[in-house]
Computed example of a mutant assay.
Amino acid sequence: MIKGFLAVLSIALTVFALADCVQTENDKVRGIPKWAWVVLVVLLPWVGPITWLVVGKDRQDGNGIDRPRRDGPTAPDEDPDFLRRLDEDIRRERRERQRREQGEQGPDSPSGGPAST
């Protein structure tokens, strides 16, 4: 029973490590070339997959957090310059709207200007 469980666990670990190795970009592979990692993972049960998972792949970003790397443009809601310009545009439109509303409500209208008795 235990031998069967260990065999299935070994196969699952090997398949997982092999899939991870094959899908890893070449610039993230550490130590030896990717093809050598594939051979190591397949031919050395337990040792190959565990070694790949521990040291074979550069899993961390520069600050120690594993996150996807973006090489292309960022989304507009993540761009600080875009957000700043958007905020300035909204404030300018509000000021213009207030000026128009104040211009429509002349000093003689009941809600604009001094109250007449």
Rank of each mutant, 00 (worst) to 15 (best):
residue 15 V to H: 03
residue 16 F to H: 13
residue 16 F to G: 11
residue 16 F to D: 08
residue 17 A to H: 03
residue 17 A to I: 04
residue 18 L to F: 15
residue 18 L to I: 14
residue 18 L to G: 14
residue 18 L to E: 04
residue 18 L to P: 03
residue 18 L to H: 11
residue 19 A to P: 00
residue 20 D to H: 11
residue 21 C to N: 10
residue 21 C to H: 05
residue 21 C to V: 06
residue 21 C to Y: 05
residue 22 V to N: 05
residue 23 Q to K: 13
residue 23 Q to I: 13
residue 23 Q to A: 15
residue 24 T to F: 10
residue 24 T to V: 12
residue 25 E to F: 13
residue 26 N to W: 05
residue 26 N to I: 02
residue 27 D to G: 09
residue 28 K to Q: 15
residue 28 K to A: 13
residue 28 K to G: 12
residue 29 V to A: 11
residue 29 V to L: 02
residue 30 R to C: 08
residue 31 G to M: 01
residue 31 G to Y: 04
residue 31 G to T: 03
residue 32 I to H: 01
residue 32 I to R: 11
residue 32 I to F: 10
residue 32 I to L: 10
residue 33 P to R: 07
residue 35 W to L: 14
residue 35 W to H: 14
residue 35 W to T: 11
residue 36 A to N: 01
residue 36 A to D: 12
residue 37 W to S: 08
residue 39 V to S: 01
residue 39 V to I: 14
residue 40 L to T: 03
residue 40 L to H: 06
residue 40 L to K: 05
residue 42 V to I: 15
residue 42 V to Y: 02
residue 42 V to T: 15
residue 42 V to G: 11
residue 43 L to P: 06
residue 44 L to H: 01
residue 44 L to F: 15
residue 44 L to K: 01
residue 45 P to I: 08
residue 46 W to K: 07
residue 47 V to L: 05
residue 47 V to Q: 05
residue 47 V to S: 05
residue 48 G to Q: 09
residue 49 P to L: 07
residue 49 P to Y: 03
residue 49 P to T: 06
residue 49 P to H: 04
residue 50 I to G: 08
residue 51 T to Y: 10
residue 51 T to M: 15
residue 52 W to V: 04
residue 52 W to Q: 05
residue 52 W to D: 07
residue 53 L to G: 00
residue 53 L to V: 10
residue 53 L to T: 09
residue 54 V to R: 12
residue 55 V to R: 00
residue 55 V to M: 03
residue 56 G to M: 04
residue 56 G to I: 02
residue 57 K to S: 00
residue 57 K to A: 01
residue 59 R to S: 14
residue 59 R to V: 15
residue 60 Q to G: 05
residue 60 Q to E: 13
residue 61 D to A: 12
residue 61 D to Y: 11
residue 63 N to K: 13
residue 63 N to A: 12
residue 63 N to I: 10
residue 63 N to E: 07
residue 64 G to S: 07
residue 64 G to K: 04
residue 64 G to F: 02
residue 64 G to M: 06
residue 65 I to E: 12
residue 65 I to Q: 11
residue 65 I to T: 10
residue 66 D to E: 14
residue 66 D to W: 06
residue 67 R to P: 01
residue 68 P to W: 03
residue 69 R to Q: 13
residue 70 R to T: 00
residue 70 R to M: 09
residue 70 R to L: 12
residue 71 D to I: 14
residue 71 D to R: 13
residue 71 D to M: 12
residue 72 G to W: 07
residue 73 P to V: 04
residue 73 P to T: 02
residue 73 P to A: 08
residue 74 T to L: 14
residue 75 A to E: 13
residue 76 P to T: 10
residue 76 P to D: 10
residue 77 D to K: 01
residue 77 D to Y: 10
residue 78 E to T: 08
residue 78 E to F: 10
residue 78 E to Y: 02
residue 78 E to S: 09
residue 78 E to G: 04
residue 81 D to E: 14
residue 81 D to G: 06
residue 83 L to E: 15
residue 84 R to S: 00
residue 85 R to Y: 11
residue 85 R to M: 09
residue 87 D to S: 02
residue 87 D to I: 04
residue 88 E to G: 01
residue 89 D to S: 07
residue 89 D to G: 08
residue 89 D to C: 05
residue 90 I to D: 00
residue 91 R to G: 02
residue 92 R to S: 09
residue 93 E to H: 09
residue 93 E to Q: 12
residue 93 E to F: 05
residue 95 R to P: 06
residue 95 R to I: 00
residue 96 E to D: 11
residue 96 E to W: 00
residue 96 E to N: 10
residue 97 R to M: 02
